[in-house]
């Protein structure tokens, strides 16, 4: 069964012409020499030819007219690249990257690297005081940075939009 499947698979690849020339040659010889291969090849060749001849289904005669009527009421949207400002995306990327770096730097600065530190890490986690990291001042500073940067990005976006509309008008 498995052998038969492999033969069929190989024959399809031979018919599709996707085999390397050496393989193509090998299958060609097998078809000539082995009756089983020859029979299967004939069968698949016939199916392949039928598949190539199958006609596409046609929609109704009014199809093009219907589409063109709809299109008369439609406007082509501007290309995405025209209204997606790469600088804004870059700005967002830089913001998140610097936020991540700030958190990492802060985190590492709080860590105890001395050799006298207790090696039982799991025990330490439960003793961690998260309120130390998320005290009000720290959260407020991050929130302020977020809000200011958000407003700057929104301003950039709206300015771009306004320029675009003026240009179109």
């Amino acid at each position: 069964m498995h052998m038969k499947k492999t033969m069929e698979e190989e024959l399809w690849e031979y018919l599709d012409g996707v085999l390397p020339s050496a393989e193509q040659q090998r299958i060609s010889s097998l078809i000539e020499e082995m009756p089983e291969w020859k029979e299967k090849y004939g069968e698949l060749l016939e199916l392949s030819a039928s598949l190539k001849k199958v006609s596409l289904d046609e929609p109704s005669l009014r199809f093009t007219k219907n589409v063109m009527e709809e299109i008369a009421r439609t406007r082509i949207a501007p290309a995405t690249k025209n209204y997606i400002n790469r600088r804004i995306i870059g700005g967002i990327g830089i913001f998140f990257a610097s936020l991540l770096t700030a958190i990492l730097v802060y985190g590492f600065s709080q860590m105890e690297f001395s050799s006298t530190a207790d090696s039982s890490f799991t025990g330490k986690i439960s003793q961690l005081d998260f309120s130390k990291f998320f005290n009000n001042d720290l959260v407020n500073v991050f929130m302020m940075i977020n809000v200011v940067l958000g407003l700057v990005l929104l301003d950039n976006y709206l300015t771009g939009k306004r320029k675009q509309f003026r240009k179109q008008a």
């Binding site: 289904d57 929609p59 109704s60 199809f63 219907n66 589409v67 709809e70 299109i71 439609t74 406007r75 082509i76 949207a77 501007p78 290309a79 995405t80 025209n82």
Partner: peptide, 22 residues
């Protein structure tokens, strides 16, 4: 289904027209 396929095909061409600039 022919009727649904025809409607969807029309939608496809309208969408293609709308976003042709892309």
């Amino acid at each position: 289904n022919r009727e649904e396929a025809e409607e969807l095909s029309q939608d496809v061409f309208i969408k293609a027209y709308k976003y042709l600039a892309d």
